Amino acid sequence: MMYLIIAVLCSVAVSVLLKILRQKNIDIRQTIVAGYPVAFLLTWVLLKPDVSSIGALGNAWGIIIALGVLLPAVFIILGRAIESVGMVATDAAQRLSLIIPIVAAFLLFGEVLTGTRILGLALGFLALGALVYRPQHGLINTQAKQTPLWLFGVWLGYGVIDILFKQVAKQGAAFPLTLFVAFGLAGLLLLVYLLITRVRWQGNALSAGLLLGALNMGNIYAYVRAHQVLSESPSIVFTGMNVGVIAVATLIGVGIFKEQLNRINIVGLLLAVCCVAILFLA
Rank of each mutant, 00 (worst) to 15 (best):
R198D: 06
V199E: 09
V199L: 10
R200K: 15
W201L: 11
W201R: 09
W201V: 07
W201Y: 13
Q202N: 10
Q202C: 05
Q202Y: 07
Q202S: 15
Q202E: 14
Q202A: 08
N204H: 13
N204S: 14
N204E: 11
N204G: 07
A205Y: 04
A205D: 04
L206V: 15
L206M: 14
L206N: 04
S207Q: 13
A208M: 08
A208Y: 03
G209Q: 02
G209Y: 00
G209H: 03
L210A: 07
L210I: 15
L211Y: 01
L212I: 00
L212V: 01
L212D: 00
L212S: 01
G213F: 00
G213R: 00
A214D: 00
A214M: 09
A214N: 02
L215D: 00
L215C: 01
L215N: 00
M217Y: 11
M217Q: 09
M217N: 05
M217D: 00
M217I: 05
G218P: 02
G218E: 00
G218L: 01
N219T: 09
I220R: 01
Y221M: 03
Y221L: 08
Y221R: 04
Y221S: 05
Y221E: 02
A222D: 01
A222Y: 02
Y223S: 12
Y223G: 05
V224L: 14
V224F: 10
V224T: 12
V224S: 08
V224A: 12
V224D: 13
R225M: 15
R225V: 11
R225E: 11
H227Q: 14
Q228C: 04
Q228W: 05
Q228T: 13
V229D: 06
V229P: 01
L230N: 08
L230D: 02
S231Q: 10
S231I: 14
S231F: 12
E232F: 07
E232K: 13
S233A: 14
S233T: 15
P234F: 10
S235N: 12
S235E: 11
I236K: 12
I236A: 12
V237L: 06
V237S: 05
V237K: 09
V237G: 02
F238K: 13
F238M: 08
F238I: 14
T239F: 10
T239A: 13
G240Y: 08
G240Q: 12
M241F: 15
N242Y: 04
V243C: 08
G244N: 11
G244H: 10
V245N: 01
I246A: 03
I246C: 06
A247Y: 10
A247D: 05
A247W: 11
V248W: 09
V248L: 15
V248H: 03
A249M: 11
A249R: 06
A249S: 15
A249Q: 09
T250K: 03
T250C: 08
T250D: 03
L251D: 04
I252E: 03
G253W: 01
G253L: 07
G253F: 05
V254R: 06
G255L: 13
G255Q: 09
G255N: 11
I256G: 05
F257W: 10
K258P: 04
K258A: 09
E259T: 07
E259S: 06
E259Y: 06
E259G: 07
Q260R: 15
Q260N: 08
Q260L: 07
